[in-house]
Nucleic acid binder design. Structure first.
Lengths: 400, 400
DNA sequence: TATGTTTGTTTTCAATCCAAACAAACGGAA
DNA sequence: TTCCGTTTGTTTGGATTGAAAACAAACATA
């Protein structure tokens, strides 16, 4: 590991991180923040400016400086480039572009036929969508990376091990994507629930929480776990299948998956089935929610049952993880607003008295969440130390 | 962050790590392994040797070198010092000493009255035990750290938030310990189940697994989760309460904790209660195991039920974590040997077909596991980069 | 004995950060 | 207005480190 470059790399990343979080900051402030000397901070800022990542910003708006010489401020150069998040959803492709400051600067959707989801064709359509999106940006922005997200288990190499919704198995999606994109473009692939979690987490720039859990309620129930800012993937990438937690002998609905699972109690089909059980009838969750809002008895009973098992599941996850926060997302999550107190009561009932209760809240992200999350992961990577570069064992086998 | 010292620190730690894992290794091999030049490796080895951490070892046993000049080997200096693990167990104090090569070199137990477990007195007794243990070693070894372990929730600061078994609450145990020990001795504190997990993990030096889960079956059921070599603590230190996972409406036994919890199905009391339910009678687990081994009908039925819920719990944890391995420990764990196939069948039944099944095995560690684990954590710290030293923000406020 | 190979050391060099000194830019006091 | 203190950014010199290359040493084999 080369000594000069490693420390320099670490410090560059840390400077970028400070600038990202503070928005507009003087060299002296960077130095103070990181425990560097002003001269070092200046040198690093100069490097990064030359590379195009930073620009000077001496706009006169708020130089609230008190005494002494005012600083010369720098900020991230939002024209440096964009990160692309490309989500393969349920019959829908969503592509977003995030700029250097992690703001969505462009977005695009297109549909595909779920019944005939040939990987090659989907990739083609995806690339087309990406290209049309980047064309409008390419005058000012360079594409600095692309992250693919999909509803399935994805391993470290970017192979989709299985994606039941798309009908894919053992699909080396990242390899295929690599072949039709510019050579040097950094690529990544991630499960959609994991990406959604990253999007949600990345909004709140505070990294003070140790553990957060994300639960996505749709027909099925998925999830993601973030520990110290890192996603838990497990050995093969299967981690986070929170819908398959077993909470009882028999769910409210018989699913193709596992009997008595979390999702067989609180997923969309479970809600509608339970509603029918109580004598109600609704074609979708919105109808059911309306019935609940007008205090219809069958709907309220259904909500009570739903709360019971959501509370049981949340309590179980709390026992395991002691998370600071549990975030609910997906189309069914909004039911939580209709029965917060019941859920919290059930959570408490299923934990020991002194056990800390996590904050539970609803996600504000919509269907473009996974795409934003994928792009956020690339953005985060830019602000993270490249461990490979520091802990490289076995120097690169020269010319093989 | 000072540039020279940081890289040096990283490289020193990496050299120590290589030497620890390889046992006896030449400078050239260290250089190759780490991608350093031989000159750099030599320089670092010289520093570490001067510090007393390494010693030359040119014993003639196995210099299986082929062609070329043979290397001069170094190994860890086992006389450099020891790490102490001190466990407060159920009426029993266990103290172990680990040498530089993570081998147990001394061990000592003593009992205390659980009904009258005054923290001050326990600490006094513990320190006495530690001192008598280290006295015999002090001729050759310096004490390099002490880790306290206890059956309770311990926060980042070393305060025991609650330890029901000991009857302690909000006990700043590490602060109190610090006052009666030499000033500069590095101290740590950890939950006993977490420490047990570290002991188990540290034996197998291969770090290739991403996630491992440890379940401890006694009267209660505890656990620990290791991800990328790191323990999951959660927000306040409560993580790993696997016994409180909820798997059904009602357990085999009514516990003071939570109805339908994992431990109310598979803990010691649950086993014995279920055995009585099936018409058997046993005063402890060993008696029950004997009955099962002689194929007694009631015992076999109990085992079947036990397997059912152990399988359900393991499947739930597998859905959440996708671990490479689940290790069972504690006095009740050995029942697993009597019904492996049943458990595995139940695990499979509660997972989707393609879901990877973790290896399940029994721990080989006995009651001194937590103490060994605590000491192992200190040993591991010696081989780990001190992030504080590298990512220090806000340089130390001089002279305050 | 000569040759090739591998090891460990020495020397030289480049990169980096820190400490200290300095010039510049500002506010406020005299 | 002028002077002084404060803060900023830059420059210079010093120290530490790792890499690269050259070299001497130690061994096996022909």
């Amino acid at each position: 590991m080369s000594m000069p470059s490693a420390v320099r790399h670490i410090n560059e990343v840390r400077v970028l991180d400070v600038v990202f979080r503070q928005g507009k900051v003087s060299r002296a402030n960077i130095a103070r923040e990181l425990g560097l000397t002003r001269s070092t901070a200046s040198s690093i800022v100069a490097s990064l400016t030359e590379e195009g990542l930073l620009v000077e910003d001496n706009s006169e708006d708020d130089k609230s400086a008190g005494t002494g010489r005012p600083g010369t401020f720098v900020r991230l150069n939002s024209n440096y480039g964009v990160f692309i998040g490309a989500d393969i959803g349920v019959g829908r492709l969503t592509v977003v572009a995030l700029d250097m400051e992690a703001r969505v600067v462009a977005q695009s959707q297109s549909n595909f036929d779920l019944a005939d989801a040939d990987p090659e064709r989907i990739i083609q359509q995806l690339v087309k969508t990406v290209k049309s999106l980047t064309k409008s940006l390419s005058q000012t922005h360079t594409v600095r990376g692309l992250c693919l997200t999909a509803p399935g288990v994805i391993d470290r190499t970017g192979t989709i091990l299985r994606a039941p919704i798309l009908g894919w198995r053992q699909e080396p999606i990242l390899d295929k994507l690599e072949k039709v994109l510019p050579e040097d473009l950094p690529l990544a692939a991630e499960n959609d629930a994991n990406a959604f979690a990253m999007a949600e987490m990345y909004r709140s720039k505070d990294e003070s929480t140790d553990t957060e859990i994300y639960i996505f309620l749709d027909a099925g129930v998925g999830g993601a776990i973030v520990n110290s800012g890192q996603l838990l993937h497990g050995q093969d990438g299967y981690a986070g299948e929170l819908g398959h937690i077993i909470l009882g002998d028999e769910g409210f609905v018989e699913l193709a998956t596992i009997s008595g699972s979390f999702e067989s109690f609180i997923g969309r089909e479970a809600v509608l089935a339970r509603y029918r059980f109580h004598g109600g009838s609704a074609g979708n969750i919105d109808e059911f929610a309306s019935a609940a809002r007008r205090q219809e008895r069958a709907a309220l009973s259904t909500l009570t049952d739903w709360s019971f098992y959501l509370g049981r599941g949340v309590a179980t996850l709390t026992s395991i993880f002691n998370p600071a926060r549990i975030v609910l997302g997906g189309p069914v999550a909004m039911l939580y607003d209709l029965c917060r107190d019941q859920v919290m009561a059930n959570v408490r009932q299923n934990l020991l008295d002194e056990h800390p209760i996590p904050e539970i809240r609803l996600s504000k992200l919509g269907p473009e969440g996974p795409a934003i999350g994928g792009a956020s992961m690339l953005h985060k990577r830019m602000l993270s130390v490249d461990e490979e570069l520091i802990y490289r064992r076995n120097r690169p086998p020269a010319g093989r």
